[in-house]
Deep mutational scan, measured.
Amino acid sequence: MISLIAALAVDRVIGMENAMPWNLPADLAWFKRNTLNKPVIMGRHTWESIGRPLPGRKNIILSSQPGTDDRVTWVKSVDEAIAACGDVPEIMVIGGGRVYEQFLPKAQKLYLTHIDAEVEGDTHFPDYEPDDWESVFSEFHDADAQNSHSYCFEILERR
């Protein structure tokens, strides 16, 4: 099963200049909980913004210009990325925008964090048809001392 995991502000903004323009430790914990011990696929820009392999996960970098870091697996196509994951129950696609666009048609599940923030962004989550998805989990949280904005975790499964 292919799943996408993303944090989205208003207007589906997911990033600005290779960074997330908010401070939500709870979302980072949600991300870790849902990706640990699963292969993660990301684009080169996302890889560069993280700066290191995510521990406890097979890191697969999709790029037309593969790098030389041998701590991760470099691939040039969506099919190659899927094959590099091996026989696993769930593959997690973690961004960025172009990689989400490439995998959305193949995805069966979306793990979304909806952030109540209007922020400037240069990267967006692809538009998706809500009628194609069923919400199977939703959990709202107010902003607090650690988390700069209110947010809602949601899991959607393709109908």
Rank of each mutant, 00 (worst) to 15 (best):
I41V: 15
V13Q: 02
I94M: 04
P105C: 11
P39K: 10
K58H: 06
D144Y: 03
A117H: 04
L24M: 00
L4H: 13
E129V: 11
E139K: 08
N34A: 04
F137K: 10
E101M: 10
E90W: 04
D87I: 11
H124Y: 03
N147P: 01
N59Q: 04
R12T: 03
H45M: 03
D79L: 04
V75M: 09
A145I: 08
I61M: 14
E118F: 13
V99H: 01
F103G: 06
T35G: 03
K109S: 09
E17G: 09
K38P: 01
Y128N: 04
G67W: 03
Q65A: 07
A145P: 05
S138A: 05
L112G: 01
P55R: 06
R52F: 05
A81Y: 02
F103H: 07
P126H: 13
N37S: 08
M16C: 10
E154I: 14
E48W: 15
N18S: 07
V10L: 01
D127E: 11
V99N: 09
K76N: 06
I14M: 07
H149I: 02
T35R: 00
A6I: 15
S77W: 13
L62S: 03
V10E: 07
E134G: 12
I61C: 11
R52M: 11
W74R: 05
L24C: 04
P126W: 12
K76C: 06
C152A: 09
T35S: 04
H114D: 11
E17P: 00
F31V: 04
V40A: 14
Y128V: 06
E80S: 05
P66G: 08
T68K: 08
Q146C: 11
Q108T: 11
T123R: 11
C85W: 13
N37E: 11
I5A: 00
Q146E: 07
W30R: 10
D116C: 15
L110G: 00
V119M: 08
P126L: 04
V10M: 00
E157M: 06
D122A: 00
A143E: 07
D144T: 05
Y111A: 03
C152T: 15
L8K: 08
V88K: 10
A143I: 06
M20E: 01
E48S: 13
A26K: 01
Q146M: 08
A83N: 10
I82G: 05
